[in-house]
Structure formats: structure tokens, C-alpha cells
């Protein structure tokens, strides 16, 4: 690292991933500190760190901490802009479309009532997702119009105005799996299948990761998707439909990789640590 530059790992919750990354930085002889955003204050444009790896689990804390640290002159990885886009499902869809990448048919309705019309255009089965959130939480399958109408009545009763802006998407008929590609610094490290007992194939919902042979198509799509949202470190989720066509579902900017690492012999934490040190000028 360039003389005097201070490196920090931003995380309120040190999970398997954060612990592995910190250990990898230690092994590489880097001097880094753990920065807990729960006690972080950035005032008067002064940051105590110069380079920050953002591993904060809470989206809003990750976003505003990154923005504040950047405003104080720090470099944050991923950037606040990348967290802003990849942490919001509509902004991600918009970025993927702008980049010409395949993604499921999606509509954004400004009210729950308008979402019923949007679903008529998309067709059933469909899915409604919160704009911000992860691990498949509150993602709801809509097999038909009566179900959609009832679910959207519940959405209308939610307290936040943001929750009344409704993101609906076609439900891609797929195998019982999706594909997670891990991208670090513009390179795909590998891929895993994620299979679960239910239609939401999130590891947080009990899905299991198994090794997937990375193809050129996986690589090209995942690297382009990460680039589209501005993420240098990303977990890109791909869906393969019944005809074998791949679409990009989402990009995770503070990617969890325990399942990936268990399925591969790749030391993901070390790959991230190596890239962080390279970017920080080590």
C-alpha cells in the first residue's frame, strides 16, 4: 500500500466472509483496521481511512457510509454509486437494460393499483419484489390475477411510500436452480449452481451451492452485468430458462461467498484481498 494509506474493512457484522477477508489481508501483510459503521461518524469532510472495503450487511448503512467516506476523500470498494444501483432492483434492471443485457421482463408501477395493469401486460405467473432487500425476503410468486390483487392490497397497506412503488417481473420458468458467478476486478472467478427446495434459490433460504463449470457465456454476461452497475466485486445471479437462454437476474455488491468457496477450491477471500491491495496501491 502506498506510504501512509490507511485500509479499513467496513462491517457491523463479522460473518464468515468478513473474517476470511480480514485473515487474508493479515496473511498478505497488510495493515488494516475493522471499521464498524454503527459507531462511524464522518464530519467536516474528514475520513480516518483512505481505502475502504465495504462489507456492511445493511444496505442503507452501506450506501450512506460509502457516500460519506467518499465525500471525505476515501476510495470505497464497491463505490457508493455501485451500491446505490445494485442495492435497488429497479436501478439494477435499468442499468442492465441500458447495457443491452438480457434480463427478465420487468415493470415498475408507481402505485399498487397500477401494478395490476402492469401484471396484465407481463402475464402470469409473475413475481413481486421489494425494491430494496435481499435473501429472497418478501419476494412473492403471483400465479394469477386474484392472487396478485390480494397481495397488492397488502402492499398498499405497508407504511413506507417507497413500498408503494411496485416492482413486478415475469417468473422465469427454470430448473430448480440458478447460477451465481463471482466477479472480482473484471474477471469471473467461477460459478455455482444454487438449488433449493423452494422456487427462491437463495442460500439464505437453505439453497445449496454446487460447482458449475464456468462457460464463456457465463463469464461474458456476469462481467458485463457487474460493469453495468459499476461493481468491481460482485455476485451475479443468472437464470437459465427452459430453452437454455440465460438472463441476468441481479448483481450483489457485498457478495456472500461461503457456499461458493465450499463448492470450489478457489480462495475467494484471498482473491478479494489481493484485488483490494492492488486497487489501494499496495
Amino acid at each position: 500500500m502506498r506510504s501512509g494509506r490507511r485500509l479499513a474493512v467496513l462491517a457491523s457484522r463479522v460473518r464468515f466472509e468478513e473474517k476470511q477477508i480480514m485473515a487474508a489481508l493479515d496473511r498478505r501483510g497488510a495493515t488494516s483496521v475493522h471499521l464498524d459503521p454503527r459507531s462511524l461518524v464522518v464530519a467536516d469532510g474528514v475520513s480516518r481511512t483512505d481505502f475502504v472495503l465495504n462489507r456492511e450487511v445493511g444496505h442503507y448503512r452501506a450506501l450512506y457510509a460509502a457516500s460519506a467516506l467518499e465525500s471525505a476523500g476515501a476510495t470505497v470498494l464497491n463505490s457508493a454509486a455501485a451500491t446505490h444501483v445494485s442495492g435497488d432492483k429497479w436501478l439494477t434492471t435499468s442499468a442492465l437494460l441500458a447495457a443491452g443485457l438480457p434480463t427478465p421482463r420487468t415493470a415498475l408501477a408507481m402505485t399498487p393499483e397500477a401494478a395490476v395493469d402492469a401484471l396484465d401486460q407481463i402475464g402470469y405467473p409473475a413475481v413481486v419484489k421489494p425494491l430494496v432487500g435481499s435473501w429472497g425476503r418478501l419476494v412473492t410468486a403471483l400465479p394469477d390475477r386474484p392472487t396478485a390483487t390480494a397481495v397488492l392490497e397488502h402492499v398498499a397497506a405497508l407504511p413506507s411510500p417507497q413500498q408503494h412503488v411496485v416492482y413486478v417481473q415475469e417468473l422465469v420458468e427454470k430448473a430448480d436452480r440458478d447460477i451465481r458467478v463471482l466477479v472480482v476486478g473484471g474477471e469471473a472467478l467461477g460459478a455455482t449452481y444454487r438449488r433449493g427446495d423452494e422456487w427462491r434459490t437463495n442460500v439464505a433460504r437453505g439453497a445449496v451451492s454446487t460447482r458449475c463449470d464456468l462457460t464463456d457465456v457465463h463469464t461474458k454476461l456476469a462481467v458485463a452485468a457487474a460493469d453495468a452497475v459499476g461493481a468491481e466485486i460482485a455476485g451475479v445471479d443468472l437464470l437459465e430458462d427452459a430453452d437454455g437462454h440465460l438472463t441476468v437476474l441481479e448483481v450483489n455488491d457485498r457478495v456472500e461467498f461461503r457456499g461458493f468457496q465450499d463448492a470450489h477450491e478457489i480462495d475467494v477471500a484471498d482473491a478479494i484481498a489481493s484485488y483490494v491491495l492492488r486497487r489501494a496501491g499496495a
Binding site: S12, R13, V57, G58, H59, Y60, V132, G133, S134, W135, R137, A204, G235, N252, D253, R254, V255, E256
Partner: peptide, 9 residues
Amino acid sequence: PEVEEDWGE
């Protein structure tokens, strides 16, 4: 801490 609504990856 309890899991919050915006937690994730």
C-alpha cells in the same frame, strides 16, 4: 442485533 429489513448482500 435482530435482522433488519434492508440486510442482505
